[in-house]
């Protein structure tokens, strides 16, 4: 099980021997069927992927064909403090967001699991932030966390005083993480809900009979039963968190907060490589770093999941 759909193809289809009896079509028919999808995948995913890797070793710009420069882009990156800031922020984002998105939606799923009256409404309502565009969500929280917004107004009313959620470098990053978690809760809640449906209720009841309290039952019964789903959620959310763009872009602004200190890696890619003066070569090298770390993250999380299995 890797990502949402990498997991899907592994399901058992009909036995191979039986399918092979069905073969009555012209030789090129299957390829005609595949053509639209294949063309899009080739032209807008695989080709750009290849050209990103190739461009990473050139000094290509948007309007200027580039020259081969070897590893110069990567050497420049290593010397560039902005790159390290961006990498730090993306990693921090991952570290902050992933534990919350693995745990909180599970608790939420347990809360909405039982068929009590009105539960369908609550499930739907908790999913609303998922449906909304990240831009809408970002603007909603920009207004809520504004110096004169609702949250600060409430904090003042209870006597805590204003907090500069959107002006302090670290609070900004933290606020963006909160927004990501807030928007993701419902999505992962549904995933956990599907997984919980497969946990035999008898396990819980047996544990309860043995005198295990709710916390104990959660740790001893629920967590082991949905562990593979937790690994999946961990993989999905860590890949998504590392590639964060919109939340920080909207909360901290296009330049990434005070002195650009909140820039993330994908924001740096976007800022460096687009527009008429874009440094395509350097941005491609940054993209390659995004690829490598994303892939590594997926492998690490899934490996960790498998090891615990054994």
């Amino acid at each position: 099980m890797t990502t949402p759909t990498a997991a899907t193809p592994t399901t058992t289809g009909p036995p191979a021997g039986r399918v092979s009896r069905i073969r009555r079509h012209l030789p090129f028919t299957p390829w005609l069927f595949a053509l639209p999808g294949l063309a899009v995948a080739a032209a807008f995913v695989l080709y750009p992927f290849g050209s990103t890797v190739a461009n990473a070793f050139t000094d290509r710009r948007t309007l200027v064909a580039g020259q081969w420069v070897g590893a110069a882009n990567f050497q420049e990156m290593a010397r560039d403090p902005v790159f390290w800031t961006a990498l730090r922020n993306s990693v921090l984002y991952l570290v902050g967001v992933v534990p919350a998105l693995v745990l909180l939606p599970l608790l939420l799923a347990l809360l909405v699991r039982r068929q009590i009256p009105g539960i369908t409404f609550f499930r739907g309502a908790f999913y609303t932030p998922v449906v909304a565009s990240v831009v809408v969500v970002g603007l909603i929280w920009v207004w809520l966390l504004d110096d004169r917004g609702l949250v600060n107004s409430l904090l003042e009313t209870v006597g805590i005083g204003k907090v500069g959620f959107l002006s302090d470098q670290w609070l900004l990053l933290l606020s963006a993480m909160f927004v990501t978690v807030w928007k993701g809760l419902g999505y992962y809640m549904i995933i956990y809900l599907s997984a919980l449906a497969n946990v035999p209720r008898e396990l819980h009841e047996a544990a309860a009979v043995d005198g295990a309290g709710p916390v104990r039952r959660f740790l001893a019964v629920t967590v082991p039963a949905v562990r593979s789903t937790m690994v999946l959620v961990g993989a999905l959310s860590s890949v998504a968190a590392f590639k964060v763009f919109s939340e920080v872009y909207l909360l901290a602004g296009p330049t990434g907060g005070p002195a650009g200190e909140d820039t993330t890696l994908v924001m740096l890619v976007q800022r460096t490589g687009t527009g008429l003066t874009g440094r395509v070569g350097y941005a491609s090298a940054l993209s390659v770093v995004v690829f490598v770390i994303t892939l590594a993250l997926m492998l690490i999380v899934l490996r960790a999941g498998r090891k615990e299995d054994a």
Partner: peptide
């Protein structure tokens, strides 16, 4: 070639959009 075709779509799904967006813009 069906297996290969399936693999193409799996690989395409795994490529992070954020990483190829500059090349897509060039295209």
């Amino acid at each position: 070639g069906r297996g290969l075709l399936t693999l193409v779509f799996i690989v395409a799904m795994l490529v992070p959009v954020e990483g190829i967006i500059i090349a897509q813009f060039q295209t």
